[in-house]
Amino acid sequence: MTIRLLIADDQALVRGALAALLVLEPDLEVVAEVGRGDEVVEAVRTAKPDVALLDVEMPGLDGIEAAAALRAVPGVRVLMVTTFGRPGYLRRAMEAGAAGFVVRDTPAAQLADAVRRVHQGLRVVDPSLAAETLVAGTSPLTARESDVLRAARAGGTVADVARELHLSEGTVRNHLSAAIGKTGARTRAEAARIALDNGWL
């Protein structure tokens, strides 16, 4: 039986390389490729793949948000394939409904095997990343603190962040202060970097 695949990655070269590797397997067929997270659901509905391979960082929607959106589409399983093997990403991807999470430099044969196992209904997780995730624990940030840090990453003022998120400036300051404290940072830029490095954003 042929397993139908969708590949979503914002780098055309990476998409093409993944597709070229996977179609060498006699039981795998790439039926769609997209470069944006907000194109994933429509492409899945149109091409009807069995497994969607999603990158984490994409424009429109990130891969984790796209995985969550795919919960509404029956018959497709999600395998995250990404450069960014951050512990928080693994936890968030699994919570969003992904069945597997592997890093992009996984050997081709192992990647093909991961696709098959996800298709069979099994969970597949990069073992070293799983261990890091257990050690790192869950994000200490609330959802709103994460939103505020994400918005603050662009370098805007408190007023800019408040406008973007429809919050008061005082509320933004409170969330930034809490996020700085919880990450052990000295500045909001450092807090955002720590949170990003841990995959909490």
Rank of each mutant, 00 (worst) to 15 (best):
S146W: 01
I194Q: 09
A66C: 11
D9Y: 01
V14N: 04
L79G: 15
P87G: 13
E29W: 01
L167Q: 02
A185G: 10
E95Q: 15
N174F: 10
A52D: 11
A69W: 06
I180K: 09
A162F: 07
R45M: 13
E65R: 12
V31A: 09
V135F: 06
G37F: 04
A20H: 06
V34N: 04
A136H: 08
A17F: 01
G37H: 04
V118A: 11
R188T: 10
A20R: 12
I194S: 06
S139K: 01
G97D: 12
A108S: 03
G155I: 07
F101P: 09
V172S: 11
A96R: 10
R92N: 01
K182D: 02
R123T: 15
T2H: 12
P140Y: 13
L54A: 08
P140S: 10
A109F: 09
G88D: 06
S128G: 07
P127D: 12
L111T: 03
V73G: 08
A19V: 00
G181K: 11
G156C: 09
P49H: 05
A151K: 01
D62V: 01
V118Y: 13
Q11T: 05
E39R: 14
D147V: 00
E57C: 05
A178H: 04
L134Q: 10
R91A: 15
L13W: 00
A192V: 12
E57L: 14
V161L: 09
L149Y: 05
A43M: 11
A67V: 11
A66H: 06
P87E: 13
E57K: 13
V14D: 11
E65H: 10
E29G: 00
T157L: 03
A67N: 11
I180G: 05
V103L: 14
L5E: 02
I3L: 15
R153Q: 15
T46F: 06
G35W: 02
V124Y: 09
V78G: 01
R188A: 12
